[in-house]
Design a binder for these strands. Structure first.
Lengths: 150, 150
DNA sequence: CGGCATCCGATCGGATACTG
DNA sequence: CAGTATCCGATCGGATGCCG
């Protein structure tokens, strides 16, 4: 049984998200899924992870409703792993991490992968946190509210 | 020496981000910093982590330029930990995780903490991934481009 | 090729005790 | 209160071998 440190009982949505994802491997699997990977081997080559690790992570992601295991589209006996709607909803998370990384960990001109608009091949706009009425918000413009259940 | 699985040599910005953050504890520390925590004890109470764990994570976050250690503002002999600009730039990441969690892991009416606009006390707009010219983009509208260094 | 079983050293994190 | 030091069981992940 997995007894990793759990955060799933927290009232904080961030903690529950973190707990649902599991670990970094899982997050990078999701990234690869966004990039088009579907097969066990594709994930493995991309990640360089040991097979048992990958197997375990795929299983927890499927169990968590983030990936779905479907029969291979090429008719082979194997499975493919595709994002569920819940998994696709992680898109902003991945994009946010990607943009943060692009802005802080690459020298100008250094090789890196970039997420672009498929239609125009252009870079994406940097994610903005907006208020309900559309103002740009920084960290200091927000505060955490406790909402008690009823 | 820490020999955790490293992703920092990857060309993928997501991987480098993940590597720079370190682990979930570190991410939750950053979350607490956004929520206003500054002192060792504040983080510890909020996280429920062992002190040695917290010490180690704070150290790596400072070393990574995400937090900065400054003298305590109350004149005591202790330190406070505040986000650097680089750390503040993680804001969209935390918000994205928070929103994903709110949408998938809480029953309607269940108690949870919520991030609100300080000025109006209202919820934030859901993060949107936009193209350079402002169209909303889903995962299928984007593709990963390899940019080779020069 | 996809996946499972097993082994093993490294690391993690909780607990506790100690310092100033 | 803010750490530091140490111990220890649990877990992790890499490697390997086996099976369909």
């Amino acid at each position: 049984m997995v007894t990793r440190t759990r955060f799933d009982d927290s009232e904080c949505p961030v903690a529950r998200s973190v707990d649902a994802i599991g670990d970094w491997w899982s997050l990078l699997i999701v990234r690869d899924a966004f990039d088009g990977s579907r097969r066990f081997g594709e994930f493995q080559r991309s990640l360089g992870a040991a097979k048992n690790i990958l197997t375990a992570r795929l299983r927890t992601l499927v169990a968590g409703g983030i990936l779905e295991s479907v029969p291979a589209s090429d008719g082979s006996a194997y499975r493919e792993y595709v994002l569920t709607p819940k998994g696709e909803a992680l898109f902003p998370v991945i994009v946010a991490l990607r943009q943060w990384g692009e802005q802080h960990f690459f020298a100008p001109g250094e090789a890196h992968s970039q997420l672009v608009d498929r239609r125009q091949g252009k870079y994406l706009r940097t994610l903005e946190v907006l208020s309900a009425d559309g103002r740009r918000l920084g960290p200091d413009d927000t505060t955490v509210h406790k909402v008690s259940g009823h």
